[in-house]
Design a binder for these strands. Structure first.
Lengths: 219, 219
DNA sequence: TTGACGAAAATAACAGTGTAAAGTATATTG
DNA sequence: CAATATACTTTACACTGTTATTTTCGTCAA
């Protein structure tokens, strides 16, 4: 009887703790979602903790019970972007068995992500690129979950298959990565400002670039 | 006599106006220099009008007599960067007669500017790239003064000389520009964060990239 | 020389911002 | 029921850019 009541009480206690933890995660998620919505509406400059708090009926200081500071919340906003980005690359990798086509598909997936998530992209790879590390660390030790690793694998495979010239795989990957990033970031920066840099011409540019690259990298 | 005294008075008046105008430009310049110094020390985030004013013994509001607002002052800070950038490209252009070497030299000049003026570069080409237009417009109608035009000319020359494959010159220029920008911007973003992205490896990357490019673009 | 004028600079104020410390309900537990 | 831990708010501080108003001061004409 004593043991039974003790375990029941323990169970109740545990359930209570679980429920409270769940509630805690719920409000954390509510804050996060409000933050995402606000970030996508206002961008980086206009992103304000006080407005986020107000939009879900909380006092500004409450946010500090769930996130260390503004940067931490903003990182949480971006980390969803990182996850989506990695997944986009992963599906591109998985759906293209041919090594060369795979590289092309990866570049296009990269491009599409940037063009369709401009605010996230600018944050993730232009303003706060140091978060790349934090984001991949956060994902655990699964190597495949790292977006760089996906690209690296694709490069290694292409080398193995004799489709591109041999060389330091990491540097090759950086080369590809940097060029696509250059096109995407310039397209995002210049669109709406320089007429020549609309989305269509950015597409043509990437197309041309991939052509030049396979030419220049062929063994 | 009447005409003489009138003209003398007119001269005095004009000199006075000139001197006042000069004094005005002097304090404007003082503000601008303080702003540059502050920007280079604190970066974009830490750049504060009030601190700029304080550092030269002015009240914050005085700045508004010389610059429209914070953005305007920040643009003035960057416009020096644009001038220096254009000049760097121009000398690279002028000192290399061979078309292919010229393209290489332009890429390296671009690279060097970015690496040695990281804050300016990030402002000019990553955060506020819409200023590129404003900066070139400001320079007057001399086509050679535009950094893009310099690169464009170099590409056209290389095509004429049969050193690279024919194609839309503007798109070709964007291709070169975007790739170098990609390397530079990633190098700036990642250095100090990702060990692999130190300055030396960025240099190797550009070297390799130029090799691949002349391979891929050879007629 | 004085008095008016006009430009330059300063004051005061407003509406924001991120963040820390202290206080207050509310719910959980013994 | 009383003690306690948790969630949240209040208050406050030190900033930010920006505007409207007021003061200071050099220049210029009478």
């Amino acid at each position: 009887m004593s043991t039974a009541s003790v375990t029941r009480q323990a169970r109740i206690k545990q359930n209570s703790a679980e429920r409270r933890e769940r509630s805690r995660q719920e409000t954390r998620q509510a804050i996060l979602e409000a933050a995402i919505e606000m970030f996508e509406r206002e961008g980086y400059e206009g992103f304000s903790l006080r407005q986020v708090a107000e939009s879900i009926g909380y006092t500004p200081t409450t946010i500090y019970l769930y996130f260390k500071d503004k940067d931490d919340l903003l990182f949480a906003v971006c980390s969803q972007g990182f996850a989506e980005f990695t997944q986009a690359l992963q599906t591109a990798y998985d759906t293209h068995p041919d090594p060369l086509e795979r590289l092309r598909a990866l570049a296009w997936a990269y491009f599409e992500f940037g063009l369709s998530h401009p605010l996230h992209y600018q944050m993730m790879f232009m303003q706060r690129s140091e978060w790349v590390l934090r984001a991949t660390d956060l994902k655990g030790d699964v190597e495949g979950a790292n977006s760089f690793m996906i690209q690296l694998n694709a490069v290694v495979e292409a080398m193995k298959a004799g489709k591109i010239r041999l060389g330091d795989p990491v540097e090759r990957t950086n080369l590809l990565w940097a060029s696509v990033h250059g096109i995407v970031s310039l397209a995002l920066s210049m669109r709406g400002v320089v007429p020549k840099w609309d989305e269509a011409s950015a597409r043509r540019l990437l197309e041309e670039y991939l052509e030049v690259l396979v030419h220049g990298l062929s063994p």
